[in-house]
Simulated scan of single mutants.
Amino acid sequence: MPLKVCVLVGSLRPGSINRSLAEALIRLPDAAEHEYHFADIGSLPLYTEEHDESPPETVVALRELVKSSDALLFVSPEYNRSIPGVLKNAIDYGSRPYGESVWKGKPSAVIGTSISPIGTALGQSHLRIVLAYLDVPLMDQPEAYIQWKDDLVADDHTISEASREFLNGWMKAFLGFAGHHKGVMTPS
């Protein structure tokens, strides 16, 4: 049974390498049969408690997308060795009001790419801490710290031959983890 996956990209930049990676990941052979929806986190206002009672439409849309999804795929750059502000803002909106978090129990995976040799390792670490606090089941292994190379993702959203097997295996592991957590069997 196909899974509905909410994809959260932590970069708003046109031509974002993390958006390119996300687009390519969902087109890999072991990922293609599932349904993917990209969350619009760029249109969210900055979080304030005043919005808890009467959230803006963009916040309602984010919360509904996450609630209706079977799993979450976080694809994010690392800013100053941490989580991009726009992604943290979206996470904060989804966790409020207190006791009504939409993140709780959603099986998830974290990945990202950077020109750095360690990819987004520290940003992923910080994101994992936040998600663990919110009771989000996270795929622990395999980890993926991807160093961006100009040939990693082609214009047609295909992943280079050098990285395709590893990233297809990573997506297969994530979807298996999500399916197992949701009680949905995915092909092994």
Rank of each mutant, 00 (worst) to 15 (best):
S108N: 14
V110I: 15
V66L: 06
D52G: 02
L62N: 08
E49M: 00
G94K: 00
G94N: 00
S125T: 01
G123N: 04
I111P: 00
F74H: 09
S108H: 14
I41H: 03
A39N: 05
E64Q: 14
T58G: 15
T58C: 12
R128M: 05
V130P: 12
A24M: 08
P55G: 07
R63C: 08
E57S: 14
R63L: 02
L127M: 13
I118Y: 14
F38D: 07
T58R: 15
E33T: 02
L46R: 06
N80K: 11
V102A: 07
T58I: 00
E64L: 09
I26H: 01
G94D: 04
L25T: 01
D70H: 15
I115V: 09
A24N: 11
E53M: 07
Y133L: 11
I91G: 00
E53L: 13
G119H: 05
S101K: 04
Y133F: 07
Y93A: 03
A22S: 08
P77A: 01
V66P: 13
G15L: 03
I83Q: 07
C6K: 08
L73Q: 10
E33W: 02
L131P: 13
F74Q: 13
P56A: 11
S20L: 11
A121P: 03
G105A: 09
R128D: 00
H34T: 03
G123S: 11
P14A: 11
H126E: 07
P14S: 10
G85A: 15
R13L: 05
P107Q: 12
K106T: 08
P56L: 13
V9L: 12
L65Q: 15
I91E: 01
E53S: 15
F38E: 13
G105K: 10
D70F: 10
D40I: 06
G15F: 00
R19Q: 15
L72F: 08
P56T: 07
L25H: 09
V66E: 12
T120M: 06
S11M: 11
P55E: 04
R13A: 13
K104A: 03
V9E: 13
R13K: 10
F74I: 13
V110A: 06
S69T: 05
P29H: 03
G99F: 07
A39T: 01
E78S: 08
P56M: 12
V75L: 10
H34G: 00
W103L: 15
L12D: 07
F38S: 06
S125D: 05
L134S: 13
P97N: 03
H34S: 02
P107H: 14
L28H: 05
E53Q: 14
C6P: 05
